[in-house]
Design a protein around this nucleic acid. Structure first.
Lengths: 284, 284
DNA sequence: ATGCGGCTTTCAATGGTTGGAATAGTATTG
DNA sequence: CAATACTATTCCAACCATTGAAAGCCGCAT
């Protein structure tokens, strides 16, 4: 990369050399997209970033990044630390807390999650689907609980987690097919199913209202998940419990998880039915 | 508003008529600011908005709003409901969950909040300061708890809430003076203190590590709050409990609240000290 | 039918946006 | 302590994304 710094302006003939490196190649992208791509640079492992890191990862010149970031900071979407690095700001968090599928379901579900948590003292999770993944909305864990793979705000694959299976089973047929057409996301500690088994599993999940996954990676655990329905009968979230493998038999956990999920569904205006595909008639 | 549509270009002399309604008066504001102002339209009472509502509240023409909103939707900052209205999206919530002062402290504090909650069965709150207000980061409440004024993601005044007093007491001197120079935010159900009493109160809070407020509005309650410190010894959050007035004596609650706040502080790397103004010497 | 309101697309004018270059500041190295 | 390498910031002329009136659509109430 050591380019000889000619004292000449020189600029070189900008044609032949590298075709992908014109004079101002990045132009053409809307400003908002660029600003959002800056936000997207932040991740679990990158919570505090310098200007140049942000510029590098978002693939834009430092001056441009600085200008955009300054506006974001002025508004409160980002905050600047004493050492000059940037972090996601409370103001953004505040607006995000108005997300119906984020804090919305959480707010409604929390009391029931707590009940389940207090009774079992194991991890209790709540997740929603966003595109092709599950997003963890809430997790209650005692200080001494077993290690668990996901954090609140993190993403998990649909095919190889209990909440994922529940959400996938509740998605529309077309989406399910699209997912199954793709190669599965590799997930450590979970054996991924062949398509036939997956189809059968999803069908079972719909029928029983329970999904179960055993995994070995961060630790040996069993997850049991159940769907949360909204007033229209759509699956809007998945509630699950994660226990050390061998502690409590899954068939003991299932009723508790399902009861909690139902309680949340009821609070969302869902009319409980005998079985998933039976709708009660008329009702104000 | 019926302006005569002259077939002439005419353009008119844009001075005399309505000075606030030039040809394109809104130009000059950076795009990002406009996009952010769209996000800012959302509030507790406005969680789902139509295009025209957004355009109206953000004070911009519908086509402009549509263009910006479309980009936000494409990224996931907003989501569009079946009825055409827009809500805050999960993707934005996901990024916001990386906010150190938002979910960051929450994540660390949650187990201790839960402990406190389980023991007392009363509201447990966690708040941080953002500019001149406290922002509620977490609230644990049993399903049958007394009514409480604030929701997670909401804002509360510094001068008239227990968490607010703790955060104010922990802010730098200059900021405190600036706040006291301003007229207090009117808060229903709380008698606001004269400046002298406020100064004394803040001093007491710093000394004792406890703030207490009695309020009558949504219901008769007593709040007891205590500061959470980071590794540098700054007050980064306030932890509080809200109980019905007359239930548990505040002096019984104080030790429990303070213990919980200390536990959280310790987890943030704070070295416990005998009194707030004593720092332990040397330490990597 | 007619009017009304909200939503969407179009398009020419233009001013906000852009990023290289230069400067200043800071940490690392010889 | 100078040299080096990196990051952060300011400046500015070229330029293209942005802008919003206008008009077309759609649904709905009159």
């Amino acid at each position: 990369m050591t380019l000889s710094p000619d004292t000449e302006t020189h600029t070189d003939t900008p044609n032949a050399a590298s075709p992908a490196r014109g004079k101002r190649p990045k132009q053409g992208e809307p400003v908002i997209d660029r600003a959002l791509s800056l936000l997207a640079v932040f991740s679990d492992r990158r919570r505090a970033l310098t200007l140049s890191e942000l510029a590098r990862h978002a693939d834009m010149p430092a001056p441009t990044a600085l200008r955009l970031i300054s506006r974001l900071v002025a508004w409160g979407a980002l905050e600047r630390l004493d050492d000059g690095r940037y972090v996601v700001g409370v103001r953004l968090w505040e607006v995000a807390s108005l997300s119906p599928r984020g804090h919305g379901v959480r707010e409604i579900a929390l009391p029931y999650l707590e009940d389940l948590f207090e009774v079992t003292r194991h991890h209790v999770l709540l997740a929603v689907r966003d595109n092709e993944q599950a997003v963890l909305i809430e997790r209650l864990s005692s200080k001494d609980a077993t290690e668990v793979a996901y954090r609140v705000g993190g993403r998990a694959p649909l095919r190889s987690t209990a909440v994922g299976l529940v959400l996938l089973a509740g998605a529309d047929q077309q989406f399910q097919e699209a997912i199954m057409a793709k190669p599965p996301e590799k997930e450590p500690g979970v054996a991924d199913m062949p398509e036939g088994q997956l189809r059968r599993t999803l069908s079972d999940v719909r029928r029983t209202g329970i999904a179960m996954i055993r995994r070995s990676h961060p630790s040996m655990t069993v997850s049991v998940a159940s769907p949360v329905f909204d007033a229209q009968g759509s699956v809007v979230a998945a509630l699950s419990i994660v226990v050390p493998d061998g502690s409590t038999p899954p068939n003991v956990l299932a009723p508790a998880v399902r009861a909690a999920a139902r309680a949340v569904s009821r609070n969302l205006g869902h009319q409980a039915t005998v079985s998933a595909d039976v709708r009660t008639h008329s009702r104000g």
